[in-house]
Simulated assay, not measured.
Amino acid sequence: MTDFWKGRRVFLTGHTGFKGSWLSLWLERLGADVAAVSLAPETEPSLYRKLAPWDDRGHHIIDIRDAGALLDVLQGFEPEIVIHMAAQALVRRSYENPAETFSTNVMGTANILDAVRQAPSVKTVLVITSDKVYANNGSGIPFVETDTLGGKDPYSNSKACTELVCQSYRDSFFKARGIQLATVRAGNVIGGGDWSKDRLIPDFIRAFESNQPILLRYPEAVRPWQHVLEPLGGYLAYAEALTLGSDRKLPDALNFGPHPESFATVSELAEALGRAHRVEDVWRLAPGEHLAEAPALTLSSALAFDTIGWQPRLSLQQTIDWTAAWYRANREGEDMRAFSLGQITAYEEALS
């Protein structure tokens, strides 16, 4: 990694979540000056608490739907770069409470962008959406950034709406001021420290610790699995390129996904996790009817390579090994802040 981030003022949302906790730690390691807003951690245990201590002066518990509180923190901090990660990120929860999902993901993003509109210090805004923003016909053909946006379930649809909100603010306000606004769409992210409900890795870990097989709803569904540090490294590289400028126009959106050989079914990943944990009886088909999910979802990251030189560094097996090692270290009582920093260091070495 370069020295670009040293001393940069970064406003981050969603810092108590899985990806946000990892990015907070990485930005701290890079020497960035961070102000962050998020809800309190929603799981126990939580990665955010595992990685403590944090600088409490820069971390704020705020709902991004509270536009006034958000504006106060952002304007008071005067950031140069805004990275917006806060979201309701679970598909099944979006079926249970669609209005909450839309209000958080769509209006929460509008609140962020409106605060930026009133903050003259901001040069770059990066909004994290999802690989699920595309209209998916189940063909399995990797999506590219120019494919049609869509999304049938409330979560996916809310993220497609978020993309349109970003497009509107970009064209209506930010272009005239020279503010760079881009969106990023990452594949299925896994890694140590995720304890969310209805996600494969934490569901597997809970089943493993209970000596039970994991119950899979859609074992044959294909997903673009990647380690959490892969897209986060892409976000950092993209934000840097947007801030410094480029001889060629950078795209308004980029995909960050794994190499095609890392595309795998849910059951294949579960079985690989079983081998890493020396478990033979790994999974069962979950009984009952299940909410609709796309049977296949894959991404092309060719544009990210062509424009900012980003490409994934870890194979699927390395991703599984790093993930299993993190949870093993946690069970054995290691210092997980130090262990996580060690994985970030190892990943930085893979980039060089």
Results as ranks from 00 to 15, higher is better:
169 Y>T: 04
211 N>F: 02
196 S>H: 05
233 G>L: 11
136 N>F: 08
177 R>Y: 01
132 K>F: 11
167 Q>M: 07
235 Y>F: 12
190 I>Y: 11
176 A>S: 13
137 N>G: 10
149 L>Y: 14
231 P>E: 01
125 V>I: 09
160 A>G: 05
191 G>S: 09
139 S>A: 11
159 K>Y: 14
197 K>F: 14
153 D>I: 09
151 G>F: 07
159 K>F: 06
215 L>Y: 08
232 L>Y: 12
147 D>Y: 06
163 E>W: 04
127 V>E: 01
224 P>H: 05
161 C>H: 13
147 D>T: 08
126 L>W: 06
210 S>A: 15
201 I>D: 13
208 F>W: 13
129 T>V: 12
150 G>E: 09
233 G>D: 13
186 A>N: 12
187 G>N: 09
150 G>H: 07
190 I>N: 10
213 P>H: 10
229 L>Y: 09
210 S>C: 06
144 V>R: 13
210 S>M: 02
187 G>V: 01
178 G>P: 03
190 I>F: 08
193 G>M: 06
168 S>H: 13
167 Q>I: 01
143 F>T: 06
183 T>V: 08
166 C>Y: 02
235 Y>D: 00
203 D>P: 04
229 L>R: 07
173 F>N: 02
139 S>L: 10
196 S>R: 09
123 K>T: 02
169 Y>Q: 09
186 A>K: 00
188 N>Q: 11
124 T>F: 01
203 D>Y: 07
216 L>N: 07
222 V>D: 09
153 D>E: 14
200 L>K: 13
137 N>P: 04
177 R>H: 02
134 Y>G: 07
185 R>G: 02
137 N>Q: 11
207 A>C: 04
128 I>E: 10
127 V>A: 04
129 T>N: 10
154 P>A: 07
220 E>W: 14
202 P>T: 13
156 S>T: 09
155 Y>V: 09
187 G>D: 00
212 Q>R: 03
227 H>R: 03
209 E>T: 03
146 T>N: 13
204 F>D: 10
177 R>M: 00
172 S>T: 04
222 V>A: 07
132 K>G: 08
173 F>P: 01
178 G>N: 03
194 D>P: 05
234 G>K: 07
134 Y>E: 01
125 V>S: 03
135 A>H: 13
145 E>W: 08
196 S>F: 06
159 K>V: 02
139 S>Q: 02
156 S>K: 04
165 V>M: 07
199 R>D: 15
195 W>S: 10
219 P>K: 15
210 S>P: 00
174 F>P: 02
172 S>Y: 15
218 Y>A: 13
136 N>S: 09
133 V>T: 12
187 G>L: 00
197 K>Q: 15
214 I>V: 15
205 I>E: 14
157 N>V: 03
155 Y>D: 06
228 V>H: 11
148 T>C: 01
171 D>R: 14
229 L>T: 08
136 N>A: 11
133 V>A: 12
144 V>T: 12
189 V>I: 08
132 K>H: 14
135 A>V: 11
232 L>V: 05
192 G>N: 10
170 R>N: 01
155 Y>F: 12
223 R>P: 01
134 Y>P: 03
198 D>M: 08
122 V>L: 08
186 A>F: 08
221 A>D: 00
208 F>A: 06
134 Y>W: 10
